[in-house]
Design a binder for these strands. Structure first.
Length: 523
DNA sequence: TTAGGGTTAG
């Protein structure tokens, strides 16, 4: 049976189970009966697993939970795995547990959590089937778990079908559904579910705020935020993030000040600080970013990967790559986001060699595998420094070796590198043979090379390929004609722009926002 | 111990 057939079969089974499950037979607590089956060998195994999960406090935690009840212990472990980076290990543990101890409702809840985290609908369907057979399937928490898994897998229509036939719904079921619609950008449906929710809570309202923000409707998001009967730290974080996402970083900073005034800032989580750092980055507010960093140090807040990469990115985008590197060097937890922030940060600041060295270091370490974003940094570094050979090697070989798919951004960097270094033919060949349709950024990268090397004929062809031609493209072409003293063509382009009323976009620059609007963090 | 907010490119 293929995986798809297997999936369909279990989906049918789930649906027939759901239709026929009727009233749930609660068995919570009953499972502990088999305690005696669990010998010391199992306790040893459990201890080993706990120690791996929590190397420092493992024994202590095990002592705290392990001796009460074996089922409780196994459930705790399943939950710990479900919340960890290896959620699939929950299923392995369940396979060993189920032969010794009858699972209870919590076991299934945690397994469904693991299915959601590993986005495994097949597992979720199977788990739901077993739970239904044991009489837990129609419990609202279990059903919510299944619903959540459908949402996490992006199957919104299927989620709706589950939602519609649920024998009982609570506020979390509505919240799940709203979040799902919001994720898919369907705020009309989300708002329909929101209106039908009998008792929306702070989670419901926050899901609406985040949903509108994600779609770019920051004003509607703000209206929901202001109308909320009660706000908690997550709602504030969602609203701050809404402004950051919609390129209004200064408003986000202002919101944090209001949060402080309402005395909510002391309970701010690392997510609040990440939001604050993102706002500083967006506003290019280096001084305020430094304040946030100092605050983190003062409060001895450990830098997790989110905080670390946000800090690195803030320093690099504000032109202080050295400070970014200091943060990077001091980080204990370096995940892909952290490496990418540093490699890209060095590349955009012109530290090409250092960026490429770091990329080699990352590959040598082999704990984190590069992805598309990493290669954007790599090509950017090659392009800024004019490292043609190295760029070619990475473009044609390393990307494949790492199992990474080439995306538009990679092509634009590579075309930029080749074209600027005078390999115009090779650059054009790449554009013409790309397996994905080149966008205007790619064509403009080629146009830039034509400018440097005064290739008028190619530039004329390239300009015609640009979909959304703007004044800059015509100005570039006219300057190119001027540089080879073809004054008639210069005049022709200028007249064309005038007739079509194509105006030059005025240049602009930005400065750091004034100190009186600075965020002052409470000590 | 079901549900909402966070990092890296463009």
């Amino acid at each position: 049976m293929t995986e798809e057939e297997e999936y369909k079969k279990s989906q049918n089974e789930v649906e027939s189970c759901m239709r026929g499950s009727g009233k749930s037979r609660e068995m919570d607590g009953g499972g502990v009966k088999s305690n005696s089956v669990l010998g010391s060998g199992w306790n040893g195994l459990a201890l080993g697993i706990v120690s791996t999960l929590w190397p420092d406090e493992g024994v202590e935690q095990w002592n705290a939970v392990g001796k009460e009840s074996s089922l409780h212990l196994f459930n705790s472990l399943i939950f710990a795995y479900a919340s960890s980076r290896q959620p699939h290990l929950s299923f392995l543990l369940f396979a060993t547990q189920t032969s010794l101890l009858p699972p209870n409702r919590l076991t299934f809840q945690f397994l469904l959590k693991a299915s959601s985290k590993s986005k495994s609908l097949l597992q979720a369907s199977q788990i739901h089937c077993i739970s239904t057979k044991l009489g837990f399937g129609s419990h609202v928490f279990v059903q919510n778990g299944l619903l959540h898994c459908y949402i996490m897998c992006g199957l919104f229509k299927d989620a709706r079908r589950v939602f519609d036939v649920m024998p009982e719904r609570d506020v979390a079921s509505f919240n799940c559904m709203i979040h799902g619609y919001a994720e898919s950008g369907d705020m009309d449906s989300a708002s329909g579910v929101f209106r039908s929710a009998p008792s929306p809570n702070v989670v419901t309202w926050t899901a609406m705020v985040a949903g509108y923000a994600r779609r770019g409707d920051v004003h509607i998001a703000r209206r929901f935020f202001e109308e909320m009967p009660h706000r908690d730290v997550v709602s504030w974080n969602a609203m701050m993030s809404a402004y950051v996402q919609n390129r209004r970083p200064v408003v986000a900073l202002g919101l944090f000040r209001r949060m402080q005034l309402e005395n909510l800032a002391p309970s701010s989580t690392s997510t609040t600080i990440v939001g604050l750092l993102l706002a500083c980055t967006g506003a290019r507010a280096l001084d305020q970013g430094k304040w946030v960093h100092a605050y983190l140090n003062k409060k001895r807040i450990r830098l997790n990967s989110y905080l670390g990469s946000a800090l690195i990115d803030m320093y690099c985008k504000c032109g202080a790559a050295e400070l970014g590197f200091q943060v990077f060097a001091g980080l204990v937890e370096k995940n892909l986001g952290v490496w990418n922030a540093m490699i890209n940060g060095l590349a955009i600041n012109g530290y090409s060699e250092r960026a490429l060295e770091l990329f080699d270091e990352m590959r040598m370490g082999a704990t984190v595998l590069p992805d598309e974003v990493t290669f954007v940094g790599v090509f950017l570094a090659c392009s800024h420094a004019g490292f043609v050979e190295e760029g070619r090697r990475h473009f044609h070989c390393t990307v494949k070796e790492c199992g990474v798919r080439l995306v538009l951004e990679h092509y634009s960097c590579m075309v930029d590198l080749l074209a600027r270094c005078g390999f115009l033919k090779e650059a054009e060949d790449i554009v013409r043979c790309m397996p994905i349709r080149p966008d205007d950024v790619v064509w403009r990268a080629l146009l830039g090379g034509c400018m440097v090397h005064k290739d008028v004929e190619l530039a004329e062809r390239v300009v015609l390929e640009i979909d959304a031609r703007c004044s800059g493209d015509y100005v570039l072409l006219s300057n190119l004609y001027a540089s080879v003293e073809r004054w008639n063509e210069v005049e022709r382009v200028r007249r064309f722009m005038k007739d079509k009323r194509i105006e030059k976009t005025p240049g602009c620059s930005s400065v750091e926002i004034e100190s009186d609007s600075r965020v002052h963090l409470k000590r």
